[in-house]
Lab assay of single mutants.
Amino acid sequence: QVLVIRIKIPNSGAVDWTVHSGPQLLFRDVLDVIGQVLPEATTTAFEYEDEDGDRITVRSDEEMKAMLSYYYSTVMEQQVNGQLIEPLQIFPRAC
Rank of each mutant, 00 (worst) to 15 (best):
A41M: 12
V80E: 14
N81D: 15
R59C: 05
Q36M: 11
V15D: 02
V37F: 13
V2D: 15
P87R: 00
I34F: 08
N11E: 11
A94K: 06
V19M: 12
M67P: 04
Q89D: 06
Q78N: 13
E86W: 01
V19P: 12
A14D: 15
I56Q: 10
W17R: 15
T18L: 04
H20F: 08
Q79D: 11
E49V: 08
F46H: 00
T18G: 04
K8A: 08
V75T: 14
E47I: 02
F27K: 05
S12M: 13
L3S: 02
S60Q: 02
H20S: 13
Q24T: 10
R59W: 13
S21G: 11
D61G: 01
F27H: 05
A66Y: 09
T57R: 06
D61N: 07
Q89L: 11
D32E: 11
S12G: 15
P87N: 03
V33A: 12
V30D: 02
D16L: 02
E77V: 10
V2A: 10
T43E: 12
D29S: 03
M67N: 01
E49Q: 10
P87Q: 05
F91G: 02
D29V: 03
S60W: 00
M76V: 09
A41L: 15
R28A: 14
S73C: 09
P92Q: 02
M67V: 01
V58F: 00
D52M: 13
L88Y: 04
I34A: 00
D32F: 01
I34K: 00
A94D: 11
S60R: 03
C95N: 15
Q79Y: 07
L84H: 14
G35H: 11
L26N: 14
R59D: 15
G22H: 06
D16T: 06
T44P: 08
F27Y: 07
D32Y: 13
P87W: 04
T44N: 15
T44C: 08
L25Y: 00
A94T: 09
D61P: 01
T18Y: 02
A66N: 13
G53I: 00
A41P: 12
R93N: 09
E77T: 13
V80R: 13
Q83L: 10
D50N: 14
Q36F: 03
D29H: 08
V75A: 12
A45S: 13
R55G: 02
K65S: 11
E51P: 11
S60M: 00
Q79W: 05
D61Y: 04
E47Y: 08
I9L: 14
A66R: 10
V58D: 03
D54A: 13
I56M: 05
E40N: 08
P92S: 04
V33D: 00
Q79I: 08
Y71N: 00
I90M: 03
V37N: 05
V30R: 02
I56V: 12
P10F: 04
T74G: 07
E63F: 01
S73T: 12
I7L: 05
Y70G: 07
Q1F: 15
S21V: 10
I56F: 06
A66V: 13
V4C: 15
F46I: 06
V4N: 15
E49T: 06
D29A: 04
D54Q: 12
V30F: 11
S73Y: 05
S12C: 08
L88A: 02
S12N: 15
V30M: 14
A94Y: 11
E62I: 08
S60D: 12
E47A: 05
A14E: 12
L31P: 03
V33L: 11
E63A: 06
S21P: 15
N81W: 04
D16M: 00
L88N: 02
Y48Q: 04
I34W: 00
L38F: 05
V2Q: 14
A66L: 13
Y71W: 04
V15K: 06
E40T: 15
I34G: 02
Q83R: 11
Q1L: 06
I5L: 14
S69T: 12
H20T: 10
V30C: 14
I7F: 04
I9T: 14
D16S: 04
Y72T: 10
E49L: 08
E63S: 06
R59G: 14
S69Y: 07
Q79F: 06
D52S: 13
D61M: 02
R28E: 11
S69F: 06
A66G: 10
V19A: 06
V15E: 03
Y71I: 00
F46P: 05
S60Y: 01
N11M: 09
M67A: 02
D50K: 08
I7W: 03
F91R: 03
